[in-house]
């Protein structure tokens, strides 16, 4: 076949980027679409809580205390007679806010550090590798609690750190290592590819190469990493809230589990069940989407142990 014949094979028009391809592959699976819908619903609930449309009067008693789940009381009531259903909805706001802001902080640290280490190599790379090996050599839960211990009650640029801000700050500051390592490895591969050589040959500046050429080629890893990492952030929020470090005066899922601990001995299982169900459902959807994203965006990437 000649070149000219090949040329006419592709219809003239808009091209399909790798992103568009991946998106199409993602939408072709029913379970993934269902999970995306579940996530969207949770996000909507969280936004609704922010807007004051959902669960605004969560703190009002809706009936007697310790009511079982029933048609009348929905998911039941807690030790103050408040609706477990409303508390659960409200918890979506806390969980998603924490996970989202922690991801943001984590990406803001991990992505530039990884890209710089991988692109420049040399002593700067060794310094960054040393930094993340060190942070990584402190067991995660110990590190997170030590950070929380220190940051609690301090002020940062005039903002007092308490409640939710400690939670996302601590999670964000301690969880960038995985991404940093991943990005560094991938950038190391890309920096010697011919397309980067070509960009250098026509005089592209280093910052333009990193931002315009290399980062777009590793950006999918950020997305895969964080769709999977979101789950561990949500779980971390639960543990921190449970240990009394999280939000105060608002119901998060971790606070609900803590409340439920006392109620369990009265046979009141529904608050624990509701929180578990909410976390389980959201995390299940996130896990499924994360896996599917990985398959769609980077089939080579092997799943690690989180």
């Amino acid at each position: 076949m000649t070149e000219a014949a090949l040329t006419s094979d592709i219809a003239v028009g808009k091209g399909r980027s790798l992103w568009a391809d991946a998106w199409r592959r993602l939408l072709s699976r029913k379970l993934v679409v269902a999970s995306l819908i579940v996530i969207a619903v949770f996000v909507m609930v969280a936004l609704g809580v922010y807007a004051g449309l959902i669960a605004r009067d969560w703190s009002e008693p809706v009936g007697p205390r310790y009511q079982r789940p029933s048609l009348e009381h929905g998911f039941g009531t807690d030790f103050l007679g408040r609706s477990v259903w409303r508390k659960t909805l409200y918890g979506a706001k806390i969980s998603l806010t924490v996970a989202f802001l922690a991801s943001l902080i984590s990406i803001c640290i991990g992505l530039p550090l990884g890209a710089i280490a991988g692109y420049f190599k040399g002593w700067i790379d060794e310094l960054i590798v040393w930094l993340f090996t060190t942070v990584n050599s402190i067991p995660y839960i110990i590190l997170i609690l030590a950070f929380a211990f220190v940051l609690q009650g301090k002020t940062l640029f005039g903002y007092p750190l308490r409640g939710i801000s400690v939670v996302y700050l601590v999670i964000g500051l301690t969880s960038w290592v995985g991404l940093c390592r991943l990005i560094r490895g991938e950038v190391l591969k890309h920096r010697d590819r011919d397309y980067v050589m070509a960009a250098r040959a026509y005089g592209c500046s280093r910052s333009r190469i990193i931002l315009g050429h290399v980062i777009p080629n590793v950006a999918h890893l950020v997305i895969i990493n964080f769709s999977l990492r979101f789950v561990s952030f949500i779980h971390a929020e639960v543990i921190l809230s449970f240990l009394g470090l999280g939000v105060k005066g608002e119901p998060s899922w971790g606070v609900m589990i803590d409340d439920a601990r006392q109620e369990l001995y009265r046979g009141c299982w529904w608050q624990l069940a509701a929180a578990t169900l909410a976390i389980g459902l959201l995390c299940l959807a996130l896990n499924i989407v994360g896996d599917a994203l990985r398959d769609a965006l980077d089939p080579k990437l092997r799943q690690g142990l989180e």
């Binding site: 980027s17 011919d194 397309y195 050589m197 960009a199 040959a201 026509y202």
Partner: peptide
Amino acid sequence: RRQMQIIFQDPVGSLNPRMT
């Protein structure tokens, strides 16, 4: 750099896959 340019061997690796 405007006067000297290069063409690469590998038709796959020499074009940035994320660019049109």
